[in-house]
């Protein structure tokens, strides 16, 4: 069982983002593995543990600094890592091409993604890779299980859960489920330094989604305190009805 997990280096969610032209200023920003990708790493490690054998490989497209996030995933327990060096922009299809080219060579049984990266917020690379590889794909799964030659994925949808099934090889994008991503132990961190991390050039191709401008969202006007306690409720309801017109 060969499981690939595609991860992304992103600014920490608590980071203040400063704009620098058509990109962001990385100075002073702490970078992390995108939180949904950590769920995917956890799911991959659990699937391997349940199976009793296999290999978990973490894969990313990015600049050399992304090795830091691959090492973090290795410290969690992944066996080896591949860094496709190249530019990652807002064109998810360009990123998907680079990943698909590598995955076609690697022939994994299962490929996991986080459901989205918390920087671009586009939620598109996983299903795009699946289409480029003509593989089955389930998005936004909270849990997965391997059953024989199939993966069973529990998918969060409006109003419930869908249990989907796909024959391997398949692609699943993960959201938060029951299992918190494990912390890397000191032993894990030491071991990660010795695990293989292969670097090669990414075949991203040209980005066809052009960024013209980045700006900060308009500041919301600071509102007013209507009052204190339950006595303020009638005035709030009046404002919602007559001023905001949302009732």
């Amino acid at each position: 069982m060969k499981i690939y997990v595609c991860i992304k280096r992103v600014p920490d969610t608590a980071a203040r983002i400063r704009i620098d032209g058509t990109s962001i200023d990385p100075s002073g920003v702490k970078y992390v593995v995108s939180p949904y990708d950590e769920f995917a790493v956890e799911a991959a490690l659990r699937a391997k543990e349940a199976k009793g054998d296999g290999e978990v490989v973490v894969l990313t497209v990015g600049d050399a600094a992304a090795a830091e996030q691959l090492r973090a995933a290795l410290a969690m327990g992944a066996d080896r890592a591949v860094l496709l060096e190249g530019e990652v922009g807002m064109d998810g299809l360009a990123t998907a091409r680079a990943l698909a080219a590598e995955l076609k060579e690697a022939q994994p049984d299962l490929v996991l993604f986080g459901m989205k990266a918390v920087d671009g917020d586009q939620q598109q690379v996983g299903p795009m890779v699946a289409e480029l590889m003509e593989l089955p794909c389930v998005t936004v799964a909270a849990e997965i299980e391997l059953e024989g030659d199939a993966v069973v994925a529990h998918r969060e949808v409006e109003g419930g859960v869908e249990v989907m099934e796909a024959t391997l090889p398949a692609i699943v994008t993960m959201t938060k489920g029951e299992h918190e991503p494990r912390y890397a132990s000191l032993k894990g961190i030491m071991a990660a330094k010795k695990k293989p991390l292969e670097q090669k050039a990414a075949q991203t191709g040209e980005s066809r989604l052009r960024v013209h401008e980045l700006s900060y969202p308009p500041e919301r006007q600071e509102g007013r305190i209507v009052g204190e306690g339950a006595d303020a409720v009638p005035e709030l309801v009046r404002l919602l009805r007559e001023e905001a017109k949302v009732l």
Binding site: R220, Q221, E222, G223, R224, I225, V226, G227, E228, G229, A230, A232, V233, P234, L236, V237, L239, L240, R241, A244, L247
Partner: peptide, 27 residues
């Protein structure tokens, strides 16, 4: 409160039931 258009400073356990009641009758 920095992003809120309207704020009520108070105990949710008092404010929310009253708000539910007032919204219901307003609607």
């Amino acid at each position: 409160f920095k992003v809120a258009d309207y704020g009520i400073v108070g105990d949710a356990f008092e404010v929310v039931p009253r708000l539910a009641q007032e919204v219901k009758s307003a609607r």
